[in-house]
Design a protein around this nucleic acid. Sequence first.
DNA 1: ATATGCACCTGTGTGC
DNA 2: TGCACACAGGTGCATA
Length: 270
Amino acid sequence: MPELPEVETIRRQLNERLCGRELISVTLLRSGREAPRGRRFVAALVGKTIQKIERRAKLLIWRFVDGTVLVAHLKMTGRFVFSNKNYAPSRHDRALFEFTSGVCLVWSDVRQFGFMHVVKAKALESLLAAYGPEPLSASNEELADRLITPKTRRVKVALLDQTVIAGIGNIYADEALHRAGLRPTRRLSALSRADRGRLAQALKQVLSESLARHGTSAKDYVDTRGERGGFLDFLRVYGRAGAACRACVTPIKKIVVAQRGTHFCPTCQT
DNA sequence: ATATGCACCTGTGTGC
DNA sequence: TGCACACAGGTGCATA
């Protein structure tokens, strides 16, 4: 579910509450396809102290003081929500993490696509190696230059490819393309230098505006306090099929690109 | 090398 | 009301 602004919101909140806290216990509740494997997972973590939580693309990287690294991906429906010691687990919870000072964190995941893995330095390195630049750190030029090849690729497909630029998902791909005035089906070869520049700029803007509002809750997403993100009301195309474009009143159209629902304004985007 | 399509899961909303 | 089907913030792999 979460894309860069949502994952970054969660990272900040985890970091704030978990830094310097020792993990006292881990309770595994449900085993999905990539569930942490039982006792080894628990033994690798219990008694360790959190140093910091980082984010790369949509991955959350938990670094412990002793060098242990835990990597998490929430995929479509994963959540990290703080609770208290009396919390009664519910159906879709996958693990409970109890820290010092009574801080408890619930990992839940309705569709069970997500994962949490303890990884060695080498494995982490290769996991991170393929990702493209972070859009909020990279320059416009660097981002624009990623959107040149392969020439026949549709621009939306390129935006969703994490090796091209990291952290963009279905919502922000559509939103950035609307802001840049580009149809999602345009081939990269049909983008001018100016088009790519506008798109890079649009990406940075939409991601940072959403981050400032703690992300978008289109459906399930909540932050670690269980609160929804506030950016939904500011979306211009995503989830607005049939509604009037906020810029020109043309009804927003929905098509399928790369098996993903894709929203655009037939007038503003060419 | 790139594109397509499906698979992984569960829940919800729509239309007949 | 019931049922079948499409669709959902993501990605990885098998096949074309």
